[in-house]
């Protein structure tokens, strides 16, 4: 927990910690932060402290009492459902299917020192037309079709083989999700691994147009075989065993 014996931080380290929490680090700064974080528990603790400072900011607001009528709507709502429900067989099946990739994903997500991945997972980027043009100008750029299992949703993914660092996705008729859920995209490899690409929400008309810079790329020589999209709770860590709603073969 709190350790006052840690080495004092430099101005640069404090700047990087603040930039990390604000999500505004440049690529060079992420690389520098990764270097500094090696064997530097003081810097790791500082990031937590800065994050906490920001997380608590909303509790400085002057309190506006909630309307009295709201309490009745919440407290007198119909009975609360039991919390612990057994997983559905569908989900269990999906879990087994995704099991092969889970080890790799878990390592990626939980690796204590993988700050770049955590940072990049926390960010996403909007699409600019020049990025689409840049990919389309590659002679070998490809479009992969994705279709939905049980809806009219359809879409395409644009990428350049060998350059998985940047992909662009366009979907239509994908149902908007409740605010606490997100769509997540995954890439399945021929060796059974599953790579997380990023998450997105639809516009109100069901359309999606996003650019991903997946933090992980397929290992050299390992082919990607399939793309799929899952629905997940936005508060959950990415999990490839979520309900699949769209798939496409590469």
């Amino acid at each position: 927990m709190n350790n006052n014996q840690l080495t004092p931080l430099s101005e640069e380290e404090e700047q990087l910690a603040a930039g990390y929490v604000l999500g505004d680090l440049t690529d060079a700064e992420v690389t520098r932060l990764e270097q500094l974080l090696v064997d530097n528990p003081a810097l790791q603790q500082e990031i937590q402290a800065v994050q906490t400072s920001l997380d608590l900011l909303s509790q400085a607001l002057p309190t506006v009492p909630a309307p009295a009528s709201l309490r009745a709507k919440i407290v007198d709502a119909p009975a609360i459902a039991p919390v612990l429900t057994p997983p559905s067989s569908r989900r269990s099946g999906a879990l087994l299917k995704g099991l092969a990739g889970l080890g790799a994903i878990a390592l990626l997500l939980l690796g204590a020192d993988n700050w770049r991945l955590r940072y990049q997972l926390g960010l996403a980027q909007q699409v600019s037309s020049d990025r689409v043009a840049a990919i389309l100008q590659q002679p070998n750029s490809r479009l992969i079709a994705l279709t939905a299992n049980d809806s009219a949703a359809a879409g395409t993914l644009l990428f350049t083989p060998g350059r998985w660092q940047e992909v662009i996705v366009s979907f239509g008729d994908l149902p908007p999700l409740p605010p606490d859920q997100v769509y997540r995209m995954w890439l399945a490899l021929e060796n059974g691994e599953i790579i997380y690409c990023g998450e997105f929400n639809t516009e109100s008309d069901g359309s999606v147009f996003v650019r991903f810079t997946p933090p992980e790329t397929p290992p050299q020589g390992v082919k990607a075989t399939e793309l799929f999209v899952t629905i997940d709770a936005s508060a959950d860590a990415p999990d490839p065993a979520g309900t699949r709603v769209m798939e496409g073969t590469i």
């Binding site: 927990m1 999500g23 990031i47 937590q48 402290a49 994050q51 906490t52 997380d55 955590r118 997972l121 926390g122 960010l123 996403a124 980027q125 909007q126 908007p176 605010p179 997105f200 929400n201 516009e203 109100s204 936005s234 508060a235 860590a237």
Partner: peptide, 27 residues
């Protein structure tokens, strides 16, 4: 998230990091 879903083109969805990342204890 609700603001974003109302369709602002400028607002990045992705200011929203995962909830409470990297925490180890209650301060």
């Amino acid at each position: 998230n609700r603001l974003s879903s109302h369709g602002s083109q400028q607002r990045s969805l992705q200011k929203l990091k995962r909830l409470l990342p990297d925490r180890s204890h209650v301060t």
